[in-house]
């Protein structure tokens, strides 16, 4: 161990000697314990107050509107405004993220963990991924905004770029957690690298990868800022009755978090008072289900070796 640690140990000894001689040690220790607990509880209380406040505000909407709030579309009329269009948009974005970010991200992770020799390129790639993960989401919005499409495809591609580094990092961690013995067993029977990856590493790493992906999806669904920069509908739109799939995905769209934002600054008071909180509850339910799935997956697969 380094010398600095040794110095710290000496300091500790002196401290301990002093501490033992003092009679106050018991209550000081208790106080420290209580202080930490208080800080943790404060954090939890903030969460509780937040949820309670939003729920109380949202309650009138659900009481009066019931399911129709979830099945009605975007509207500037507070009596008929619902979140259906937003849910559709968010699902469409999520599907694009699954189709784009997931395969590219997992492949990158496999390359980084299984194939890449420790060269300048792979180290550069690793640094790039870590740095990309920290780029503010609105910067991705500027990137997506410089393309001309104000549709769900542009939004989905931008969100895919946004979550790609997170998919890579979580997938890398899951792959790294697979013990080498599993790989060696594969090589031992004459498998090639790809065969080992495909039938030994991936099955073992998949639950971990999936946990990460589900959490990533939650992130993509909750993001708002990039969509505002790319351009997203906040007024009214409805596709024609004979709209094809292509018409729908290249037409106007909106997303759940964007609805929360635009309602919070709508001038009719009902929007900010109760409709936006109700939209938040719908958004949170979607995210909690995803998070719950991730935690369930993790608990199911923890400590397997």
């Amino acid at each position: 161990m380094t010398t600095s640690i040794t110095r710290r140990q000496e300091a500790t000894q002196a401290d301990v000697a002093k501490a033992i001689q003092r009679s106050g040690i018991q209550w000081r220790s208790t106080l420290f314990h209580a202080g930490l607990l208080l800080l943790l509880l404060t954090t939890l209380v903030i969460l509780l107050v937040l949820l309670a406040d939003i729920m109380i505000k949202a309650w009138p909407t659900f009481a009066e509107r019931g399911v129709s709030f979830v099945t009605d579309g975007l509207s500037l009329n507070p009596e008929t405004a619902g979140v259906f269009t937003g849910i559709m948009g968010s699902i469409a974005i999520a599907v694009i993220v699954i189709l784009l970010a997931f395969p590219i991200g997992v492949s990158s992770a496999i390359y980084l963990e299984e194939y890449a020799p420790d060269t300048r390129l792979s180290r550069f790639l690793d640094t790039t991924v870590r740095n990309l993960a920290g780029v503010p989401s609105i910067v991705y919005g500027l990137l997506g905004g410089s393309t001309d499409g104000k549709n769900v495809i542009a939004a989905g591609i931008t969100m895919s770029a946004l979550v790609l580094p997170i998919v890579i990092i979580t997938a890398s961690e899951a792959i790294r957690a697979v013990p080498d013995s599993i790989r060696e067993a594969g090589y031992g029977v004459g498998a090639t690298k790809w065969e080992v990856v495909r039938s030994h590493v991936m099955p073992s790493a998949l639950p971990g990868i999936l946990t990460g992906t589900v959490l990533t999806l939650a992130r993509a669904i909750g993001e708002t800022a990039p969509l505002l920069v790319i351009g997203v509908a906040t007024g009214y739109f409805a596709p024609p009755g004979d709209a094809t799939f292509v018409d729908q995905i290249t037409g106007s769209y909106t997303a759940l978090p964007v609805i929360v934002f635009s309602w919070s600054r709508q001038t009719q008071a009902e929007f900010a008072d109760t409709l936006a909180p109700a939209a938040i509850i719908v958004l949170l339910v979607v995210l909690f289900v995803l998070n719950g799935a991730a935690i369930w997956l993790r608990n199911k697969t923890e400590n397997r070796w």
Partner: peptide, 24 residues
């Protein structure tokens, strides 16, 4: 935009096959 959107919504209740987009 609010006037056009409110009208679009009310009008589309009679003509549900027509697609309408209102932006501002």
């Amino acid at each position: 935009e609010p006037v056009s959107a409110l009208n679009a919504e009310a009008w589309r209740a009679i003509h549900p096959e027509v697609g309408v987009t209102v932006e501002g």
